[in-house]
Nucleic acid binder design. Structure first.
Length: 537
DNA sequence: TCTGGGGTCCTAGGACCC
DNA sequence: TCTGGGGTCCTAGGACCC
C-alpha cells in the first residue's frame, strides 16, 4: 500500500460519489413535464417531511427534513410527490454497479452515496499517476452515470473519507472537486465546525458556547480543551478531523445490526386497543423484513413518541435469537404494557436488534441443544411464560410464521401506511398517491398528479415521451390501474441527454436564480406542475 | 404548521459474577 | 464479615447520519 501521512494518503485515491437531489432527479427523469420545475419528494400527509427537493425547489428555501406543510407554503406551485423507493433502489443498483467496476472496495452510505477506494481496484492502472489519474477516473464515472441513467452525480476525490466527502459537497451540483494532498489544513480552517462528520446541532452548540465556530478554531483550542468539552471518544475524533486526520478505511457493506419499522400517525392515537393493534402490525412488518434478510434477533425494542414529541424506548432481550412473528409480537405487547399511552401517541415503532445469521435450521438445532441442556440441568419447570428460550418456542410451534397468521392480520401488513382511515378503508389499489405510475386502458401510461373529492388527475407521459396531457377520472374508474414504474435506462438517458445542457466538466455556475417559476405548461395542455394532493381550494 | 423513517455509535447506571 | 475492584450484560437515552 502507499504510505499515509497523518492518516491521509499520498494521492487523492478515495472517491466519494453523491448523486444530485437523487429522489427528485429520478422523478424528473421519469416525468418529462417536471424537468426544470420545482419538485419535492417526501411524506405527503399532515405530518410528512421532505426527503429531497430538486434544485429548482431549493431556490424557494425548501430543503430535506423540512415539514412538507412548510414547504408547501414556501413553494406552493412545486410538484409534491410520494417516495417510490423501489424505483430509487433500482436506479441505485445501476450506479453502484458502475462503482464496482472501479474497485471491489465500495462502501454504500445510502441509496445515493458511496465511498470507493481506488487503490484497491484496477481503475487507476493505465491511467496517469497521482492526482491527474484520479481526476480522469472521476470524470469518466460521471459520464458513465449520466449515460446509464440520465442523472448527474458529484464526485469528491481526496486522501481520506472525510475530505472526499467535503469535496463532493463542494462539487455539487454536477461537478468534481479534488483536494490535492497537502492542502487540506488550509482548506479546512475557515469552514464551519458543522462541516466535520459527527458535529451536529448539539455539538456545534457546545462548541459555539466555548467561542468555537470554525474548524481552525478547533485546532487553536487544542486537544485538552476539546476532550473537556466533548468527552473522550467524541473529543478525540473531532480534534483529529479538524486537523485533517482521518484514517478510517473504506469498508465494503457490513451486515445490519438491527431492523426496525415505525409509523407516525396523522392523528394521535389514544384508544388503547388501537395502540395494541398497531404494535402488533408493526411487529409483523418488522419480522417480515427480518426474515427477508435471512436474519433473526435476540432483543425486541418498542418505541413510543407521545403527543408532545417526548420519546421513550423499552427493550427486552430473549434467551435466544428468534424470527418468529408470534414471539416478537408478544414481547412487543409485554413491553407496551409498561407504557402509559393515555395522553396520546403520535408514533409507534418495533425493532429487533442483536441480530444473528441463524437460519430456521440453525435455530432448530440450537433449540434442541438448549432443551437437552435444560433437561440435563433438571430444569423442567414448565414453560417460562413467553420470554422463554426463544429457540425452543421456534421448535415447538414450527412455522407459525406469516403463513399461519389469521387473514386479517396478514392483510394488515399490506397498507404500509400510517394514514388514518376513518370509516371504511380504501382498497389498496384505489388509493392514488401523487407521483405514482398508472395505466389507463385508453390513454396508456401516466402518473397521478393529484386526487381529492372522488377524482384523480393523471398526466399521460412517460420518461421518453414529450410532456403529456392531463385528464381527470373518478377514483374508482375501472379503466385506471396502478402500474409498475418505468426503469430509467440508457434509452431514457439518451432522450434526456438531448434535452439537457451539455455535460459539465467543472461545476456549472448556478444559473441566475430565476425567481418564482411560473408553472407554465410547455405544450399540449394547460397543466399545472403542482400536485394538488388532496387540497383543492 | 411544527418536527419521517431507517439506521449507527456512545454513554451511563445497575445487576451479577469472580 | 467487610471492602473493593474488574468485566460483562442489559437497559435507556441521546447524538448523529442520510
Amino acid at each position: 500500500m502507499c504510505g499515509t501521512i497523518n492518516g491521509v494518503r499520498a494521492s487523492p485515491t478515495i472517491l466519494h460519489l453523491d448523486m444530485d437531489a437523487f429522489f427528485a432527479a429520478v422523478e424528473q427523469a421519469s416525468k418529462p413535464s417536471l424537468r426544470g420545475k420545482p419538485v419535492v419528494v417526501g411524506g405527503l400527509g399532515p405530518r410528512g417531511v421532505v426527503s429531497t427537493a430538486s434544485y429548482e425547489a431549493r431556490r424557494f428555501g425548501v430543503h430535506s427534513a423540512m415539514p412538507t406543510a412548510q414547504a408547501r407554503r414556501l413553494a406552493p406551485n412545486a410538484a409534491y410527490l410520494g417516495s417510490r423507493f423501489g424505483l430509487y433502489r433500482a436506479v441505485s443498483e445501476v450506479v453502484m454497479e458502475l462503482l464496482h467496476e472501479l474497485s471491489p472496495l465500495v462502501e454504500p452510505l445510502s441509496l445515493d452515496e458511496a465511498f470507493v477506494d481506488l487503490e484497491a481496484g484496477e481503475a487507476l492502472k493505465g491511467a496517469q499517476s497521482g492526482a491527474e489519474g484520479a481526476r480522469q477516473v472521476g470524470e469518466r464515472l460521471r459520464r458513465d452515470i449520466r449515460a446509464a441513467t440520465g442523472l448527474t452525480g458529484s464526485v469528491g476525490l481526496a486522501g481520506s473519507k472525510m475530505l472526499a466527502k467535503i469535496a463532493s459537497e463542494q462539487a455539487k451540483p454536477d461537478g468534481l472537486v479534488l483536494i490535492p494532498v497537502g492542502t487540506e489544513r488550509g482548506m479546512l480552517a475557515p469552514l464551519s465546525v458543522r462541516t466535520l462528520p459527527g458535529v451536529g446541532p448539539a455539538t456545534a452548540e457546545v462548541l459555539r458556547k466555548a467561542g468555537i465556530t470554525t474548524v481552525g478554531e478547533i485546532v487553536e483550542a487544542g486537544e485538552d480543551e476539546l476532550l473537556r468539552l466533548l468527552g473522550k471518544a467524541h473529543g478525540t475524533s473531532v480534534h483529529a478531523m479538524a486537523h485533517g486526520i482521518d484514517d478510517r478505511p473504506v469498508v465494503a457493506e457490513r451486515d445490519a445490526k438491527s431492523v426496525s419499522v415505525e409509523d407516525t400517525y396523522d392523528v394521535d392515537l389514544t384508544d388503547r386497543t388501537r395502540v395494541r393493534l398497531e404494535v402488533e402490525r408493526l411487529a409483523e412488518r418488522c419480522v417480515t423484513r427480518l426474515r427477508a434478510a435471512g436474519r433473526s434477533g435476540r432483543t425486541v425494542v418498542i418505541k413510543v413518541r407521545s403527543y408532545d414529541f417526548s420519546t421513550l424506548t423499552r427493550s427486552e432481550t430473549l434467551r435466544g435469537p428468534t424470527d418468529d412473528p408470534g414471539v416478537v409480537r408478544e414481547a412487543a405487547l409485554r413491553l407496551l404494557d409498561g407504557v402509559d399511552t393515555t395522553a396520546g401517541v403520535r408514533l409507534l415503532g418495533v425493532g429487533v436488534s442483536g441480530l444473528a445469521d441463524f437460519t430456521q435450521e440453525d435455530l432448530f438445532a440450537q433449540a434442541q441443544a438448549a432443551l437437552s441442556e435444560e433437561r440435563a440441568e433438571g430444569r423442567t419447570e414448565g414453560r417460562t411464560e413467553g420470554v422463554g428460550p426463544a429457540g425452543a418456542e421456534e421448535a415447538e410451534e414450527g412455522h407459525s410464521g406469516a403463513e399461519g397468521q389469521p387473514r386479517a392480520a396478514r392483510a394488515a401488513l399490506e397498507p404500509a401506511s400510517a394514514v388514518e382511515e376513518p370509516g371504511a378503508a380504501v382498497p389498496a389499489d384505489r388509493r392514488w398517491i401523487p407521483g405514482q405510475d398508472v395505466c389507463h386502458s385508453v390513454y396508456g401510461r401516466g402518473w397521478v398528479q393529484g386526487s381529492g373529492v372522488g377524482k384523480v388527475t393523471v398526466r399521460f407521459e412517460e420518461p421518453d415521451t414529450p410532456p403529456g396531457r392531463v385528464r381527470t377520472f373518478s377514483v374508482d374508474d375501472p379503466d385506471l390501474l396502478p402500474a409498475e414504474p418505468r426503469m430509467l435506462d440508457a434509452d431514457v438517458a439518451a432522450v434526456l441527454a438531448a434535452q439537457l445542457p451539455a455535460p459539465a466538466q467543472s461545476p456549472v455556475p448556478a444559473q441566475s436564480p430565476a425567481p418564482a417559476i411560473r408553472p407554465k405548461s410547455r405544450s399540449g395542455g394547460g397543466g399545472v406542475s403542482s400536485s394538488a394532493g388532496t387540497s383543492s381550494p
